[in-house]
């Protein structure tokens, strides 16, 4: 395990930001920490990066504890890019390099180039646009090839072009096999890159595990045709895997527990003299699962 969190508890006054949260982040995983605002995501990341102390519980990096030297193996962007406004990008990265001990002068140029900032290295951070600031923060985080990356809302405040750029970088890093811990609201993005997720709400850990295990085998088949709604009960009798049918205007949305072949459904409708104008198989989205879990709680 890269990070092991055990019974972490933190409160601010009467608010319990984390309630005995335990989770394990395996090596090589892209681990999404999901949750609405105030769910405790940043508090947990703050504790494991020593920005704040927990009331109780513990965590361990690389199975070795909490020593500050271990944090040098972790590149982090938490909430906002934080740099010296009067220093240029190069000098800011130099400070990160001196503190973390990761990389050298050549590596600073490499990461600036990778984040498309090489020609902006001499510009003061205070004069950077929001997108450039965010890219510089990612450059600082990936500098010197850390063992783990923590990215807390890496697309915060970015325009669509910036989000696309960040997604590309994330996919590249994930493809390199790097362990990435990512906290984000953008569930569609998370689903594209994450292998594991944890869902937090009001400081409670509601679920955690591999993405495919969390989403399970449940999926939907959407049928559209004139009079298709007349087949609702017949479909239920024929296919035992259907656990729920949502009826719309000339539309049925079948929620299924297990695999049913689309052509069997089509054939059944045809046999019942209904010609389908639409037949679509839809996998469960992480967003749906997230909403299902958080609403249940």
């Amino acid at each position: 395990m890269v990070l092991q969190v055990s019974n972490l508890h933190k409160h601010f006054g009467k608010v319990h930001a984390l309630k005995n949260v335990s989770l394990q982040i395996p090596k090589g995983s892209v681990f999404g920490i999901l949750g609405p605002n105030g769910s405790g995501k940043t508090t947990m990341l703050g504790i494991v990066t020593d920005m704040q102390k927990s009331d109780s519980g513990s965590y361990s990096w690389f199975g070795k504890g909490t020593d500050f030297q271990l944090r040098k193996r972790v590149g982090s962007l938490i909430e906002t890019p934080n740099f010296y406004t009067y220093l240029n990008a190069y000098d800011n990265l130099k400070i990160t390099q001196l503190i973390s001990g990761r990389g050298d002068d050549a590596e600073i140029k490499n990461v600036l180039k990778r984040l498309d900032l090489l020609d902006k290295g001499h510009i003061k951070f205070g004069n950077f646009s929001l997108g450039m600031k965010q890219r510089l923060a990612v450059a600082a985080a990936i500098m010197g090839n850390p063992d783990v990356l923590i990215l807390d809302e890496p697309t915060n405040g970015l325009d669509p072009e910036g989000i696309a750029f960040m997604r590309t970088i994330l996919l590249e890093l994930a493809a390199e096999g790097k362990t990435i811990i990512i906290a984000s609201h953008l569930l569609e993005e998370v689903q594209k890159v994450c292998t594991h997720v944890a869902i937090l709400q009001f400081g409670d850990l509601l679920a955690q595990g591999k993405v495919e295990e969390l989403l399970g085998t449940s999926y939907k088949i959407i049928l559209e045709a004139d009079c298709v709604t007349s087949l609702e009960s017949a479909l239920k009798s024929k296919f035992k895997a259907i656990n729920h049918i949502e009826v719309g205007k000339n539309q049925l949305s079948l929620s299924l527990n297990e695999k049913v072949l689309a052509q069997d459904v089509n054939a059944f409708c045809f046999e019942n003299k209904v010609i389908l104008s639409r037949l679509e198989v839809v996998g469960t989205k992480l967003e749906d699962k997230f909403l299902e879990i958080t609403r249940k709680n």
Partner: peptide, 13 residues
């Protein structure tokens, strides 16, 4: 500018 915080995150004691 939260640079003290960032320095600790980056591994400063």
């Amino acid at each position: 500018n939260r640079t003290i915080r960032q320095n600790v995150i980056d591994g400063q004691q």
